[in-house]
């Protein structure tokens, strides 16, 4: 097995498992709320339905609106294929380090926000404004937690960071714990989950992500939905990669890859289950408390930085 083939398997896997992950979260939530739920395959069924449907577009929609789904989808997919899931050192993982990865997602968001404004409805602009504002406020926390992570590995390349964690002896690192908490908080915000945004709401006035894609239909909508699912899985994989990479394989042999796959599924499922529990027990934040939440994430990651210098470097 060559590393290139694992790379392809990995990217396709993230793409295909993404709806399952979304379905898994909603099933978990349903069970936690004493409901049966629609099953893990429901997002797949939704996508299939949407792909079959006709596209309806407003009269004055411009090419920005038309191409945005493709840009969003490919930028997200590109970001996803950079993240190692099974094999530590994949050919594409050097294409972009963590900062570039975040920038790729920012590119997707930029076009999504523009698409939201293209039709010229109040809701689209509202969603774009909220999304861009909150993602901007999330950025410092994101960078700070990347910074903390890169301190011990001296790198922002995912492969190097993972290798560093795998090769260093197990130790308790308060700084990493802080960085992880901050990263999880940011991931929740970036993916528009409760308590920041409610992915299942039908109330236009409270939406963020959904407000921007309100005008989409058919395959365009399917692509955007799919991209959002890929993003969720991407962040889960990223968190798993950075904090609990054990089980990933360094060689592209079959057994290693299979074991890595199994462990990856378990780890990601665990993380997503935690997300489901979290979402069940929380209500959405008031809109103007979101900045406080994000600055909280920043403070936590900064504490990680400080505790790194205070406790881990040693005097």
């Amino acid at each position: 097995m060559s590393s290139a083939s694992v790379q392809i398997i990995q990217a396709v896997m993230l793409l295909l498992f993404a709806p399952l992950a979304a379905g898994f979260v909603s099933t978990c939530k349903a069970r936690l709320q004493n409901r049966r739920g629609a099953g893990v395959l429901q997002p797949w069924r939704n996508l299939r339905k949407l792909f079959k449907k006709e596209v309806v577009m407003a009269h004055h929609a411009s090419w920005v609106f038309r191409f945005a789904p493709y840009i969003v989808f490919t930028a997200t997919l590109m970001a996803a294929s950079v993240v190692p899931a099974l094999l530590v050192d994949t050919p594409l993982s050097l294409t972009a380090d963590v900062i570039a990865l975040v920038a790729l997602l920012a590119l997707a968001r930029f076009f999504l926000a523009l698409a939201g404004m293209d039709i010229g409805t109040a809701f689209g602009g509202m969603g774009a404004s909220r999304e861009m504002t909150f993602s901007a406020l999330a950025e410092p926390a994101m960078l700070m937690s990347i910074f903390v992570l890169s301190l011990s590995a001296h790198s922002t390349n995912l492969t190097t960071m993972i290798t560093h964690t795998l090769n260093s002896p197990f130790a308790l690192h308060p700084s990493l714990a802080f960085a992880m908490v901050a990263m999880v908080m940011i991931a929740v915000a970036e993916n528009g989950r409760i308590p920041i945004d409610n992915p299942t709401t039908h109330l236009e006035l409270t939406m963020i992500h959904e407000a921007m894609i309100l005008e989409y239909s058919g395959r365009h909508l399917a692509l955007l939905e799919w991209a959002a699912m890929v993003k969720l899985l991407l962040f889960s994989t990223l968190i798993v990669d950075l904090f609990i990479p054990w089980g990933m394989t360094a060689q592209a042999d079959l057994t290693g890859v299979v074991i890595a796959l199994g462990l990856w599924v378990v780890k990601v499922a665990g993380l997503l289950f935690v997300l489901a529990v979290f979402e069940t027990s929380m209500a959405k934040l008031r809109l103007f408390e979101v900045p406080e939440y994000l600055s909280g994430a920043f403070v936590i990651s900064f504490l990680g930085l400080l505790s790194y210098y205070m406790l881990e470097v040693g005097a």
Partner: peptide, 11 residues
């Protein structure tokens, strides 16, 4: 539910 606290909603 409008505050996305769906647990209460379902109960």
């Amino acid at each position: 539910n409008d505050a996305a606290f769906s647990f209460m909603h379902n109960q």
